[in-house]
Amino acid sequence: MKSLFGNAALVLSIILILSCAGKEHRKPSGGLEVIDDLGNPVLIDSIPRRIISLAPNLTEIIFDLGAGDKLAGNTLYCNYPPEARYVEKVGDLLTVDFEKVLSLKPDLIFITVEGNRKETFDKFKSLGLKVFVSNPRNYEGVKKSYLGIARILGKEKYALEKIEMWDRLLDSIRNKSRGEKPKTAMLPVELKPLMLAGKNTFLNEYLEFCGLVNIADDPLINYPVFNREEILVRNPDYIIILSDGKLKTEDLLDLYPEWKDLKAVRNGNVIFADRDLYSRPGPRFAEAAADLFNLLHPEESLRYPER
Score class of each variant (00 low, 15 high):
243 S>H: 07
251 D>L: 01
34 V>E: 08
302 L>W: 10
50 R>H: 11
140 E>K: 14
166 W>H: 15
149 I>A: 03
77 Y>W: 11
4 L>C: 02
52 I>P: 04
87 V>K: 05
17 I>Y: 08
51 I>T: 12
5 F>G: 10
5 F>I: 07
33 E>T: 10
132 F>K: 12
50 R>N: 11
223 Y>E: 03
295 L>T: 05
305 P>W: 01
156 E>C: 11
197 A>H: 13
139 Y>V: 09
35 I>M: 03
275 R>F: 03
76 L>V: 13
83 E>R: 09
81 P>Y: 07
237 D>F: 05
8 A>E: 06
17 I>G: 11
162 K>A: 05
197 A>G: 15
121 F>T: 00
95 T>H: 14
225 V>D: 03
4 L>A: 01
293 F>Y: 15
253 L>D: 03
172 S>K: 15
215 I>R: 06
241 I>H: 08
82 P>M: 02
176 K>A: 12
75 T>W: 07
48 P>V: 01
304 Y>E: 05
65 L>F: 09
134 S>C: 15
194 L>H: 01
127 L>E: 04
190 E>M: 14
81 P>V: 00
118 K>G: 04
164 E>M: 00
52 I>V: 15
145 S>Y: 01
236 P>I: 07
154 G>P: 04
117 R>H: 04
19 S>D: 14
134 S>H: 08
97 D>V: 00
238 Y>C: 11
85 R>E: 09
287 E>S: 10
95 T>R: 15
144 K>V: 00
227 N>F: 07
218 D>C: 06
41 P>I: 06
213 V>E: 14
70 K>R: 13
242 L>D: 07
93 L>K: 05
262 L>Y: 04
156 E>H: 08
28 P>N: 04
132 F>D: 14
263 K>M: 07
191 L>M: 05
117 R>G: 03
277 L>M: 12
209 F>D: 06
136 P>C: 03
79 N>L: 15
